[in-house]
Design a protein around this nucleic acid. Structure first.
Length: 833
RNA sequence: GGGGCCGUAGUCCAAUCGGCAGGAGACGCGUGACCUAGGAUCACGACAGUGUGGGUUCGAAUCCCACCGGCCCCA
């Protein structure tokens, strides 16, 4: 690792002393570990050790690693190192998600090729990972922008295409005016581009989609088997947005075909007083009456100009135009005016709704704005919506609803659905919020879509043996500037090809794939990174997958994690994998923030990882991250004390350095009190690490360090074998979090390195047994006495002891006993009469 | 508007099932010892009573209800 120019060897690191110099041991061990290569996963089929797959969300190479990476990769590394110590055959790979817009923007600015920026950053990050002591198997390293990788993106696209899961269609799409490309629904956050924050616009374009909606039910159902944070599952559930309701057919006067409307509240059908069509839906244009045409056109143009943000704003006044037409309510024959509005979305449901203003807030807002009637059909006991302006959505008794009158809401829903089905006017229906995944992008630095457009043959897949369709390498700098169509369109020599089917002149598809395609299966590629006969070796994947733990940020809760689940299910259906979920256990670490808000370059609210490491050392930074709190919580760097971490490490290191007994000394002869602390620590830390309670595990290691210190100074002394045992235990446990310091301790204790292979200590059950425990005696819930008792004392013995206590007698003040609760050996509660 | 998560010392955080908050651990602060005189080390100490109000219970930080405050998802 090259030292940063600002670093000076003269300046001692914070907290360093002559015995513990973090920088010196970093340099020493980094070089040694490269020789030892302790973390290569074994592919030997004869290797009987059970396997574990520790997976980290791979980074995007935007400059050097930052504080967020430091936290996420510290967590993943602790897990992997724990499994190594437990003797598993561990795979802990790393790679780079190296296609994407920032590289392209950098190339435009510097008049270079995106690859230059990308691969330079990857090298920087790889060096930083080495220094950060991550336990990766470097032989599995991959980059999604390598042709050897994206070739298989194209191959998978073609398999999806064959199965009808990749298709092209025209329609309204999300358009980022800044990045000059379309976006998937998942990439629009509150109306803004997820990447650059620009307000998203709508455009009508023909684009490529993956049919993720076909998997909606399975994506929902299979969540049951996942050990994921509840909130992530909830987010995915919300995103998929399954709802049960009914499709109802409405006749429109003067139109032959009825229009189908989806509703989750068919019970309110008698309360429908008007009908709304999405202003940008084809239906609105079609049915608009001639006398309303001019008004409608003006409105539609206004709607098309507005951004998603404006459209979604909650407090915004409703807008719309009457279309001059009427729909017929199928249950009561009422004529309902048909309006066009932007609060109904063309892409959802069928692009039209029945409006029930009494029981839907948006419908009510619209009705009040345009003076449309409000009819209550569910009596909920709340105020009249027409008066209060608040729609009522709760349970209640049906009124004004013909045959439904008197039924409850929940009874009315199946009843009306039945009626509709009998009359052929509708049927029960399930609707999803989830849309198909729009995967084409009008940008350069991504995987070319392997399709050729031929005038005669139409869409023609590029034959497998012609993959990869490589990106042209002669485009650079200004050639890549966004212009609304893919820069690839300008590469004539690349675009113009012969049709693989008929040989006539044809053109390549010029769009590239969403980079989320790349990341939807990279974890499979790690299992056989050099494989050339397919995206992955099916046999290897069977051995390693699914990943036992996946560590990364919650920002991927619906994007990457949903797409990867979808890919896995498709591959399962293709018979390429034998599991349906890719990640068994998921850990979402919180963010590293500063002074209460997110770190950001633009506001200068930033802590530089390299500087922190230069000041405190890798181990102290890792320890600070892991000790700060539960991994899923945000951690505020301003609240933390990396110098405190250095101090503790120096303390632990000193304890190991002071040990004077020889390796292999007979611990059985050692100080029993310290041995008990050591073994209790082993027992607790093991449990805590398994449960991801790293901050508490570290607190226990600190206690053991203090206990050892005390034994050396005022107890059995540095030569006692129990001190050696404690120091060795500390070194191994610390090796998960602070590998450099642990290695140095291990060496000083006279052992063969690396400590990573020392093996996890086992607690001796005999040393976990306590001779006596404190029993609390309460009178009426107040603590009156404490008794030292045997841990296996019988309940009636304990009760006798408690009642006999003098302090208890005083507290009872002569009152009789009403009740005694005994929970041996911890507590006795005496309730006086 | 609907749904979810969370409120413990000045700060970050602990507390299997409801069972000792003499708060596990740490930061910061203070006092003392020691010395290599430091941004070192060791020892000791102070500050709190679980956001508020009810309820259930022998017993509530933990369970239930309402409210206040903060965060997240969907609209």
């Amino acid at each position: 690792m090259e030292p940063k120019p600002c670093e000076s060897d003269e300046e001692p690191m914070t907290g360093a002393d002559e015995n513990y110099d973090p920088r010196a041991i970093q340099d020493k061990w980094q070089a040694r570990w490269e020789e030892l290569n302790p973390f290569a996963a074994s592919e030997d089929p004869a290797d009987e050790r059970p396997r574990k797959y520790a997976l980290d969300m791979f980074p995007y190479p935007s400059g050097d690693l930052h504080m967020g990476h430091a936290e996420a990769f510290a967590i993943g590394d602790v897990v992997a190192r724990y499994w190594f110590q437990r003797g598993y055959n561990v795979m802990h790979p790393i790679g780079w998600d190296s296609f994407g817009l920032p590289a392209e923007n950098a190339a435009i600015k510097r008049d270079s090729h995106p690859a230059e920026w990308t691969y330079a950053n990857i090298d920087t990050q790889a060096d930083s990972f080495q220094r950060y002591a991550t336990s990766f198997d470097w032989s599995r390293r991959l980059h999604t922008s390598d042709p050897d990788y994206y070739r298989w993106n194209q191959w998978l696209f073609l398999r999806f295409y064959e199965r009808g899961l990749a298709y092209r269609k025209g329609g309204n799409v999300n358009w980022c005016p800044n990045d000059q490309t379309v976006l998937a629904n998942e990439q629009v956050v509150a109306g803004h581009c997820e990447r650059c924050g620009a307000p998203v616009e709508k455009r009508v374009l023909t684009q490529w989609y993956f049919k993720i909606t076909e998997y909606a039910d399975r994506l929902l159902a299979d969540m049951a088997e996942l050990e994921w944070p509840e909130r992530v599952l909830l987010m995915q559930r919300n995103w998929i947005g399954r709802s049960e309701g009914a499709d109802v057919a409405f006749q429109i006067e003067g139109r032959a075909e009825p229009v189908t409307v989806y509703t989750t509240r068919p019970d309110t059908l008698y309360g429908a007083t008007f009908f709304v069509v999405a202003a940008d839906a084809a239906l609105a244009d079609e049915i608009c009456a001639p006398e309303q045409r001019a008004e409608f056109e003006a409105y539609r143009q206004a709607v098309q100009r507005e951004s998603e943000v404006e459209r979604l704003a909650a407090d915004r006044e409703k807008t719309g135009v009457f279309l001059g037409r009427y729909a017929i309510n199928p249950v009561n024959g009422e004529r309902m005016p048909v309006w066009a509005s932007d609060y109904v979305l063309a892409e959802y449901g069928h692009g039209a709704i029945m409006a029930v203003p009494a029981h839907d807030q948006r419908d009510l807002d619209f009705a009040r704005r345009f003076g449309l009637p409000v009819r209550v059909v569910v009596r909920t006991g709340d105020a009249d919506p027409a008066e209060s302006g608040v729609a009522t959505a709760g349970e209640g008794e049906l009124v004004n609803s013909g045959p439904l009158n008197g039924l409850s809401k929940s009874a009315a829903i199946p009843r009306i659905t039945e009626v509709l089905e009998e009359k052929g006017l509708g049927k029960a229906a399930v609707n999803y919020r989830l849309r198909d995944w729009l995967i084409s992008r009008q940008r350069f630095w991504g995987t070319p879509i392997p399709i050729i457009h031929c005038e005669a043959c139409g869409e023609v897949p590029v034959p497998d043996d012609q993959l990869p369709v490589r990106l042209p390498d002669d485009l650079r700098g200004a050639d890549l500037a966004p212009r609304g169509v893919s820069p690839l369109a300008a590469a004539a020599g690349w675009v113009n090809v012969d049709c693989p089917k008929c040989g006539a002149a044809a053109k390549r598809d010029t769009d590239t794939m969403d980079t989320f395609v790349d990341s939807s299966w990279y974890f499979l590629r790690y299992c056989s990174p050099g494989y050339t006969d397919g995206p992955f070796d099916v046999e290897q994947v069977r051995r390693w997958m699914p990943a036992d733990q996946y560590t990364g940020g919650v920002e991927h809760a619906i994007l990457h994690l949903l797409y990867s689940r979808f890919f896995t299910k498709v591959l399962y259906d293709m018979g390429m994998v034998d599991f349906t979920e890719p990640f068994t256990r998921l850990v979402n670490q919180g963010q590293v923030i500063l002074n209460g808000s997110a770190m950001s370059k633009s506001t200068g609210n930033l802590v530089d990882l390299g500087e922190q490491i230069a000041e405190y050392g890798v181990d102290a930074v890792r320890l600070t991250m892991m000790f700060a709190g539960p991994p899923e919580d945000d951690i505020d760097w301003a609240d933390l004390s990396p110098s405190g971490a250095v101090k503790f490490l120096a303390r632990a290191h000193r304890v190991a350095a002071e040990v004077t007994s020889a390796p292999g000394a007979d611990v059985a002869t050692g100080d029993t009190e310290l041995r008990k602390v050591t073994h209790r620590t082993i027992d607790e830390v093991t449990r805590l690490v398994e449960a991801h309670r790293y901050n508490v595990a570290i607190a226990r290691m600190m206690e053991l360090t203090s206990a050892t210190r005390k034994t050396i100074d005022t107890g059995a002394g540095a030569g006692d074998p129990a001190v050696r045992e404690a120091a060795e235990t500390l070194a191994v446990m610390l090796s998960l979090v602070t590998p450099y310091t642990a290695e140095e301790m291990w060496e000083r204790l006279g052992h063969d390195v690396p400590v990573a292979k020392a093996g996890w200590p086992a607690a001796e059950p005999a040393l976990l047994v306590q001779e006596s425990v404190t029993c609390v005696v309460q009178v009426a819930g107040k603590i009156r006495d404490r008794l030292e008792v045997s841990p296996d004392i019988a309940e009636d013995d304990l009760e006798r002891l408690a009642v006999a206590s003098e302090k208890v007698q005083v507290a009872m003040g002569g009152r009789g006993v009403r009740k005694i609760i005994v929970r041996a050996p911890k507590i006795v509660n005496i309730v006086p009469a």
